[in-house]
Design a protein around this nucleic acid. Structure first.
Lengths: 131, 131, 131, 131
DNA sequence: GTGGTCTAGACCACC
DNA sequence: GTGGTCTAGACCACA
């Protein structure tokens, strides 16, 4: 696993770890049942305190993204969401709005933003539509 | 100006204020040269510590979104961006990635996300393309 | 707030704190928008490390049961559940099964268990049925 | 014997084994004097470390639920409980409280919870009342 | 050896 | 002053 910590970022370290693991899963680089590095391994590799890794893993587990078992390690879980669809829509649309507002203030026109959006989305492994 | 603080949100209050002012500008509800409420007015209206409002205004000024003239109040600035296009692309694409990763983990398919994105984008006043 | 820690219990301390706060809310002793003791206050009162209290509060926040704001403290949130109804049913029925199995092994007959159940349920403030 | 391990559960594996054996007994699928699989058999069947099975059996024996005769295997014991009725009541009522508190926070109304409780209880073989 | 819990103590962002 | 993050290090339950 390749994880890079940006110490200059205001984003907490544990959150950066979460971001990158979720990204790797969404990209298909990590698949369900794959084993994650142990807390101690990753802590040594990134030169961080094991508690920091632990916090990231705990959060990921709580979000149902990984499964951790004392004595066995941490594994990627099946994709799933306990949230009701309306809650998911609300959460995502809030994030979309922030993105769009930012784009407007950066004077990026709608077409360009749409292209960047499509270009980025193409790289990820979405769940198939259930039409 | 209508600003609503969501105390349940983990987003800091000063950030929520920033978000909503930027949103109102992007929606066209606030236009260049419009006068913003004074720090004291807004603090009284939202029942918040004036320091919190100050922090939001200071941040907005730093981002070139408003202009404060000491003694005369704060005004909406012209849209502009000092950032190079490549930096803007990088910043927005990072945000797009976080959004898409989140959508994948919520098992929202690409088409649905695209629809939500388009629906949201339509509400805002983008700068015209400079083709 | 009256919280009692049982050091003899195998249940982690932070979990005991969570249990009792959720209980107080369910009993109506704590109501939405009530202020909880600060992390440091409660840590001093229970002679525990502030991190332990912090962990309990963080978990409660993640479950949408309280709202914490740096600089402002922690407050009881409105009752709500982001979980879909089927997930809620599954979670509760698993817990019910464990309870019933335990009762059978303790040779408690069905009627007695039902009475204990009703007696306990009566003490709590359920959401009204939405028939 | 059909035992299923849910690796996604936070419940320890040895505890899941205990849960399911107790459940099978409470359902009447396993009866007093029935022979349980050997530690090795079960370990092979579930692809688990034999120590894990051992721990489960040891705990079940300690709780008086099974009897292991060295060299002869493990057998289901007669239902019995050394605990005084008041202790049993205390233990069960604690568990009932946790269940009810959870239900309140999930915004399940009392009637629905009661129905789920009755529906679940009906499936099990309670000891007859000793009125 | 694995992750989980708890303590102790430093530093920072928020209000 | 509030809670959040991170480090360091001890001890325990699980496999």
């Amino acid at each position: 696993m390749q994880i890079k910590i940006d110490n200059a970022s205001t984003r907490p370290i544990y959150q950066q770890i979460i971001d990158q693991i979720k990204r790797d899963i969404a990209l298909g680089r990590l698949k369900a049942a794959d084993k994650l590095p142990t807390v101690r391994q990753l802590a040594a590799q990134l030169v961080l305190n094991p508690n920091t890794i632990s916090k990231a893993y705990r959060q990921l587990e709580q979000d149902g993204i990984i499964v951790t078992r004392p004595g066995a390690g941490a594994y990627v879980a099946e994709l799933s969401s306990n949230l009701s669809k309306s809650v998911r829509k609300k959460l995502l649309c809030e994030q979309i709005e922030l993105l769009v507002v930012e784009a407007v203030h950066m004077q990026i026109d709608a077409r360009t933003l749409g292209e960047w959006f499509d270009g980025t989305a193409k790289k990820f492994k979405f769940t198939d539509s259930e039409e």
